[in-house]
Design a protein around this nucleic acid. Sequence first.
DNA 1: TCGCCTCACACATTTGAACGGG
DNA 2: ACCCGTTCAAATGTGTGAGGCG
Length: 606
Amino acid sequence: MLQEKSLSEPEDGFAAPQAPGHSETTTGSPVLGVAGVSSTPLNSPQGPDPEQTIENIKVYLHEKELWKKFHEAGTEMIITKAGRRMFPSYKVKVTGMNPKTKYILLIDIVPADDHRYKFCDNKWMVAGKAEPAMPGRLYVHPDSPATGAHWMRQLVSFQKLKLTNNHLDPFGHTHAEDAFGLPSFSESGNRAAGIAVPSSDGGTSCNEWMNCLNTAKGWDAPQPLCLLLAKKLGEKIILNSMHKYQPRLHIVKADENNAFGSKNTAFCTHVFPETSFISVTSYQNHKITQLKIENNPFAKGFRGSDDSDLRVARLQSKEYPVISKSIMRQRLVSTHGQLSTKSDVNSLHGSHQGLQHYQYENGAHMQFAASDAQDLPLNTFAAQRESGLFYHCLKRREGTRHLDLPCKRSYLDASSSVGEEHYFRSPPPYDQQMLSPSYCSDVTPREACMYSSSGAEIAGVSSVEDLPPPPPPPPLSCNMWTSVAPYTSYSVQTMETVPYQPFPAHFTATTMMPRLPTITNQSSQPPGNSPFTVYNQLSQSQARERVPAPSFPRERVHPSVCERKPPSPHLGAANEFLYSQTFSLSRESSLPYHSGMGTVDNWPDG
DNA sequence: TCGCCTCACACATTTGAACGGG
DNA sequence: ACCCGTTCAAATGTGTGAGGCG
């Protein structure tokens, strides 16, 4: 059964939301204008409490430490034709909503850069220019729309989101007639309809479709196009393999009619840099494989045990346990990597900069740089882990265990905290304290995977962040992502506040943007006059470091928030709005680590 | 030959219906 | 009749590894 969180828990640990706007890192610069966004007051129709406006919404990434752990190694997500879930799954805790206001929560996944990658010499390297973007797809939480109280009641899980590389996915057709029997929106057709047409590179990104709509004078776009975009919603998001992506969470406020698209509709976007990943059809980095096996209950069968070792051995008609090829490769590569392919971990995950964009309808806009100081120790964590692995490999050779235990054992034992520590970190260094109880302690697999928003997990994040700096790491480093050149940001202001992006998840103005169509009412508008006013806010992570970290008391998760309900019938109308909104955001929120917020004033009422 | 992808497979978890007791 | 807990089987989610393809 699901481990549901208590809905009656009075204190959820987030009772004291941070005041991100109180950052001293304010730059105060407008960022980008986006067509179709108004600057009208936000808190009127649905927000009786003026204090509970969009910018007060806080989003906390669940199992942040687990995400970070993957991020350190270079997260990979399997994509298959049938669709593969993400692991770690995307779950967030939301606070600061108006309990009575209805919101839509949705996710999209945008390219993090303009490169295609390959895994070579135990590290990711740029292998060329990215392939054309896949057809845009949003994943709307099936509970949407729901009240703020509903969303804040427990974790919001997007774990049913699937990633696919199937271009012909029923909901992924670029051509309307293929998927819905609708007229094809060819370039010429769209131009005839007055719609800016995405680049003719063969793909149609979310951004581009969004730009189409934005350019089409609000929702004067042909209804089939709107319908197409709305129907393109599904549980799968189409990605290209060997490309880097960044998931984004969007929170859209519903209007008084429980509909979407009114003039006062507001939205915000939250990006957690540690959730970025490279899509693959098979795992390249075996550290990731191990992490998946160790933490994903469904992969428990690969954790093994003495019995399973024997079983495998029998299956292999051998009297000794078998080391899988992958494990052997992992060890060889890891050892080799430590010796020969050192790279600067700081260039990878040294500082997860965070920015939150907040767009507000009063015309004001602020931008806060979020130097995610809590992530600074990650460099040393990665280095230590690397060194620990190296140490362990050497140690195992001279140890006695390999004589009486399967070589697989040290890896298999990683299902427990001891095993993991043993394998990755032979000496119990500082990063052992990093281990979140959720996935490193003896919790049951379900506790680790399902709605395990236990207090210990988030508290673990807190404790980690409060830890003193680790001892100086050895001159070893994670060798992932080193070949990824730092990116320039979409926004100069943003880059000024983001000195380094180890794993950037944003477009570059010179690479990604040219593929976007020319939008009239945006491009013609100076940023300062843009109707899309942007606030940048401290990232959640940075905010947390300034206040006592929230704690998650063990509570039950309401099943509905855990995607157990069918999609709401309201989504049909909502989706259209969401597409437009989110795609609008795409133009600016291609900025990494942002939370964007804004309103729309060009949507037709109703 | 190589890199990437697809598929079938075994294993584990999740889900929900069926059942029985209170 | 209803509720609750347990059991069981089907559905689903995993990584693996062989094989196909360009």
